[in-house]
Design a protein around this nucleic acid. Structure first.
Lengths: 197, 197
DNA sequence: CTACGAAAGTGCAATCACTACACTTTTGAA
DNA sequence: TTCAAAAGTGTAGTGATTGCACTTTCGTAG
């Protein structure tokens, strides 16, 4: 157990990466719906069965590295700078998240990637689901921060609304302004309920 | 053209109803995921092809009569009693909507119905999508009411949040209190932006 | 060093929602 | 009466996803 990563783990990661790469390439080239999983598997030189051992579904091929979205979300409310309200911190996070969404943000094909996601209903919905999946964790983190019970409705509502604000921000040409307006709707009600947070 | 409803229309409605009834019966009995569309079609004594001519998908079999959800939503903000704020009006509507959701609310199997929807991810998501589908129309209605531009972000955000509040309300044991808390989060921010609405 | 079990990968067949197609039957109305 | 549109049918497909039985490939305990 000196090295946790043996050839085995390496090969596994390699296969997974080959699949994700092949998928991205094909999807960007011809469109998500025009490419079958069979083709992706073939391009990565594995069987379809193997593909589904690595990814739970076709959409997951696009959104690799679900990773630490949840941890980041929780950290944002817990470790926000002193004096910054929770809604304010969430607002900034939502704004940044658009950039972080793509794994390879530096890739010149980044624009094509987000365009594909926006233009494909299945992917749009999947992305939003990935995001809102962490609603509960976020709600708990907020409640802990303000000393409210774990199932506090106001905290749950703030979590939900903040996560949903992403779609509002997403579809507007002026993301920053959209985010400010959306969160301005939440800020006063929140401050009234939990002043100083 | 004395009678707009000929035998043709009647038969069509009849077939549709037979399908919806058969589906509901089978789904409640054995669970949504355990019943295939083929079985539903057989039970209604039509072909699968015909089933899909009447319903756009399997989920639609459960939520018949999508109907006037949108019109009701728009009416709620436009025709609200004098002096009642838009968020307040929406809050009451969301609370009522839970009851209206099921077509046959008087049916003794109502409890089983909602239970099935709650327990089946596909149906839960579909129900929420049916609801949020009208976000844009609601946003426009709100904007018109306050004299804002059609694409006003604050109005869009209020629409989105109000519709999403349904989820919050839905899963709480005390719907009224949950709705009050959730909308209390929106009310002050809204009043600050559009006083008197 | 080696044998053994777990993990990775394979191929095939099947399921299930949904669609395209080419067809027959019904029905409203000219 | 006639005729086109609408309703319905059966078949054959697609495409994602799963179960199964199988082989290959490691990691490691002995």
């Amino acid at each position: 157990m000196t090295e946790q990563i043996g050839r085995r783990e390496r090969k596994k990661a390699q296969t997974r990466q080959a699949l994700a790469d092949a998928a991205l390439e094909l999807f960007l080239d011809r469109g998500y719906d025009q490419v079958g999983v069979k083709e992706v598997a073939d391009a990565a030189d594995v069987s379809v069965t193997t593909l589904f051992k690595h990814f739970p579904g076709k959409e997951a091929l696009v959104f690799d590295e679900d990773g630490d979205v949840e941890a980041a979300l929780v950290a944002v409310v817990r470790d926000r700078p002193a004096g910054r309200s929770i809604p304010h911190a969430l607002r900034e996070h939502v704004l940044l998240a658009r950039t972080r969404l793509a794994v390879r943000a530096a890739d010149p094909r980044f624009a094509a990637f987000t365009r594909m996601v926006d233009d494909t209903p299945a992917l749009r919905e999947y992305a939003q689901r990935m995001w809102t999946r962490h609603e509960e964790a976020l709600a708990r983190a907020i409640a802990a921060e303000v000393g409210a019970p774990e199932d506090d409705v106001t905290c749950a509502a703030l979590a939900r609304f903040a996560l949903e604000a992403r779609v509002i921000v997403q579809r507007h040409a002026e993301p920053r302004r959209a985010a400010e307006e959306a969160f301005a709707l939440l800020e006063p009600g929140w401050a009234a309920r939990y002043p100083g947070h």
